[in-house]
Design a protein around this nucleic acid. Structure first.
Lengths: 341, 341
DNA sequence: TACTATTATGGAAGCGGTTCCACAGGTGAT
DNA sequence: ATCACCTGTGGAACCGCTTCCATAATAGTA
């Protein structure tokens, strides 16, 4: 039998459905023999009670919040996730947090459709993913409130965004203020697979800082590749072989910055004495390694996003907008005045 | 009205439930006027259709897997989580992954009860939490298969465990082999709040290695405190003020090892020239900072655990046991021969 | 012995949707 | 005028469980 129900069990055991249900909830007064028999039939038929039917009939309220992220590899997503989790546990209404990792950009739409179709979640938190107008409408239609944690300022009232251009500017300006003039940019392809323009935005900030200091852009100093430490490592090695290598590097993420630092050290140079390196994000790791970086309050963005979503779920229509603290330069030990060494 | 149903909507709109349902599924042939009216009533009543009722009647299979973890702060949990996620996405049956963070040890039992009561999940992955026999029975009774990723070898067939004693031995032995004789242990309280004896076990390994080399245990060299980088930092400072400070430190986790290294460097000493430091776990961070450590294949343990659970869910009764590769010493740049500097 | 509690059990009703079937009313072809 | 065929709609049946009520059988009490 495909999926036996309690009726099947009841029939096979020669008892009524009520009795089977009582056995299942190992509740009041069922005679030992009956219980025995029912249990054995359950075993035999491989019966498993339906979660939904049970929930419907008991009337449990059982709300799910979905968190969609591109992938959980980079620490920045983990930090946001942690923030979400915290916000959730601070209000102790029991929402479940369901994790959706969009492993491939192409599947994003499909995943979203499934979520809506099967009405899996009551609310959705979308992190750093491009979401089309069509998809927005889909969610609205289905009555699923959502909050977007974005890398671009979207003007959405239901969103929290980071000003990446400004962040890129801050990082670069810091290096320029220290007297560096040969400043490289190491980042992702300007628009990656997911259509997330984070690198592009931070790069724009880099450009505007250079412009402010009247420094022409040197194409050799702009190194793009896949996200990750290894790529950054490789790109940095290339930078160092230039006839006139940079004296400072702005890496668009802390992870990449770490890759840069390793490459610099491996080639016998010192950080920050010979080359300054600044990252972006301020993930946990950065504190550990003493990396100078731009803090974007990742954990807090997850926290606030979740709070907004909870608002929307608890009292539909009313959302208190939340704001992230401004980006912040965090100076540690990987940048230093030019020419000091 | 507390929770309006489609019947309420139907009555208020003066139509039949079928029509309301059709509107909700914006489906075939409903006259524009009717649709309009129904939608406005829905709006007015604040109607939201029940997820469960819908699922029951459409018969969607909608399976959830829960992952219970102590907290998501330490990277080691994140790595396991990533492994789980990967295993899940490799088989594309659509299971949802629900995250349960046990924020306080006391609440663990309560959370487990809720999960069982509300039959939220179809399977459970329990990471590094002590689970009582009573709780095991509870899950068995409820027919919820579970897999335990444990720090202790439990003999469970449905578990994956790490041999922490051996790991502690490996780490310490490595330092001893390098000629160190004054070797400190920096770790958590031997049994922490959650009743997880990880520190205790690794400490036992430490002891057995010392015994093998006939080195008496120096109580001053055993420093315990709360998990985390800061505590390790503080403990290490204390170690360095000893009349005869250690020449090598075994920190029970990579995070703590990083704290140790910072403290050493801040006090003007070098790692590994003056003091060797070895960690435990081999989280991502460790590769970045070049930490010598004991690799315990965290990501893979999450991966294998999830595979086992999926086995149990797909074909009840049949579980292919999975085994973790043995613990592995990973030598990087934070340990060195004693006296070489 | 007659009457009341108590215990074990069967089964109908209900949870809130979806879907199928029946049917009314209108259209167009014969 | 008759018939076949759409279109829009109402409502019963159903999804698989829990729970309450009714009832039979047994035990306890005066």
């Amino acid at each position: 039998m495909a999926n036996p129900t309690i009726y099947d069990v009841a029939k096979a055991a020669g008892v009524g459905v009520g009795t089977v249900s009582r056995v299942l909830n190992n509740s009041t007064r069922v005679s030992p023999e009956t219980q025995e028999k029912v249990l054995s039939v359950i075993q035999e038929l491989g019966f498993r009670r339906s979660k939904v039917a049970r929930q419907l009939s008991t009337g449990v309220q059982h709300r799910n919040i979905g968190a969609m992220l591109p992938y959980i590899t980079p620490p920045s997503f983990v930090e946001r996730l942690r923030g979400m989790q915290m916000a959730l546990s601070h209000q102790d209404n029991d929402f479940n947090l369901i994790l959706y990792t969009v492993s491939e950009p192409d599947r994003q739409h499909e995943q979203l459709l499934t979520i809506v179709d099967q009405s899996t979640v009551d609310g959705l938190l979308i992190t750093t993913l491009n979401i089309s107008d069509e998809e927005r409408d889909l969610l609205k239609q289905a009555g699923i409130p959502f909050v977007i944690l974005s890398d671009v300022f979207t003007g959405d009232t239901n969103g929290i965004s980071t000003d990446n251009v400004h962040g890129g500017y801050l990082a670069t300006q810091h290096l320029l203020q220290l007297g560096h003039r040969r400043v490289a940019y190491v980042g992702d392809e300007l628009t990656n697979n997911y259509g997330i323009p984070t690198s592009d935005l931070r790069y724009k900030g880099y450009l505007s800082a250079l412009a402010e200091y009247d420094i022409p852009v040197n194409a050799d100093y702009v190194c793009l590749g896949m996200h990750g430490e290894e790529t950054a490592h490789r790109l940095t090695r290339q930078l160092l072989t230039l006839p006139e290598p940079p004296t400072a590097i702005f890496a668009m993420s802390d992870i990449q910055a770490v890759g840069c630092i390793q490459a610099v050290r491996e080639s016998g140079l010192r950080v920050p004495e010979d080359i300054s390196v600044i990252g972006f994000d301020d993930v946990q790791l950065s504190r550990y390694v003493g990396l100078t970086t731009v803090r974007q309050h990742l954990e807090q963005s997850g926290y606030l996003g979740m709070q907004m979503l909870l608002d929307m779920l608890m009292t539909p229509g009313k959302v208190t907008p939340r704001h992230l603290p401004p980006l912040e330069l965090v100076v540690r030990n990987t940048t230093q005045q030019y020419g000091l060494a």
